[in-house]
Simulated scan of single mutants.
Amino acid sequence: MGIFSRTRDIFAANFTELLDRAEDPARMIRMIILEMEETLVEVRASAARSIADGKEMRRAISRLDELQNSWTEKAELALSKDREDLAKAALMERQKAADMADGLRAEIAVIEETLKSYEADIAKLQGKLREARARQNAIANRIESAVTRAKARELLNGGRTEDAFSRFDILERRADFAEGRAEALGMTGPKSLEEEIAELRASEKVDAELEALKASLKSKGA
């Protein structure tokens, strides 16, 4: 009766209402699933015991039927020997076996009805269990999504993002300084007076050597 009572409570359970009242919906639904799984195991175990009892009773009925046939033969034998008293006693034993067999058949009918109830309850429990597991997955996905959104908002609105961008500013300033230094190394300042005079002297010397080279080539050609 305890199993049937628990099963009825599960069938009547309104998951949405339970979850609305729960402080921790994920924990609540895990407890509901565990309760259903335990109840389903118990119902199946009870059904298995009822099936075993039914098989044992059918074997007993078969033995009782054989016993009735045996007592019938004995009654016929007694009558053939004009022993009506023995025949009557044999028929009384046959009736006892028949009554026992009828009692077992009545018990089997009860077991069969119980098994039908078990079968219906198992099907309903499995449906409720599928529903609970589906809700568990949905809740897990919602929690995971909420955590992800919270992390994203914390990253966008928190101090960590500002620190990261401030570090980017520092790195950009360092890059600007390095580029400026490289450009400065390639720069040349205005020439001094001495440098300009030295360049003129060097240019005059080159011009003189060039004229001498021309004169030499001209004399060789003549």
Score class of each variant (00 low, 15 high):
117 S>D: 11
181 R>P: 03
208 A>E: 14
98 A>H: 04
210 L>Q: 12
166 S>Y: 03
160 R>Q: 10
200 L>M: 12
95 Q>F: 01
186 G>D: 14
151 K>R: 13
71 W>N: 00
168 F>D: 08
194 E>D: 11
94 R>I: 00
139 I>D: 10
216 S>W: 13
160 R>Y: 04
56 E>T: 04
204 E>G: 08
74 K>R: 15
49 R>E: 06
92 M>C: 03
70 S>N: 13
136 Q>D: 09
135 R>Q: 15
18 L>V: 05
178 A>V: 05
111 I>G: 08
27 R>S: 11
111 I>L: 14
124 K>Y: 07
149 R>L: 11
216 S>C: 06
110 V>T: 13
67 L>P: 00
165 F>G: 03
15 F>R: 07
181 R>N: 07
208 A>S: 10
182 A>S: 09
179 E>Q: 07
140 A>Q: 10
102 D>M: 15
68 Q>I: 05
207 D>G: 05
41 V>R: 13
177 F>I: 09
6 R>A: 09
14 N>M: 04
128 K>C: 02
84 E>D: 14
217 L>Y: 07
221 G>D: 10
131 E>K: 09
108 I>E: 08
156 L>F: 12
138 A>N: 13
130 R>S: 12
3 I>A: 11
50 S>T: 08
189 G>L: 11
197 I>N: 05
126 Q>C: 02
36 M>D: 05
84 E>C: 02
134 A>D: 12
198 A>Y: 10
85 D>S: 01
142 R>Q: 12
168 F>Q: 05
180 G>E: 11
78 A>H: 01
185 L>D: 02
181 R>C: 02
82 D>Q: 15
102 D>Q: 15
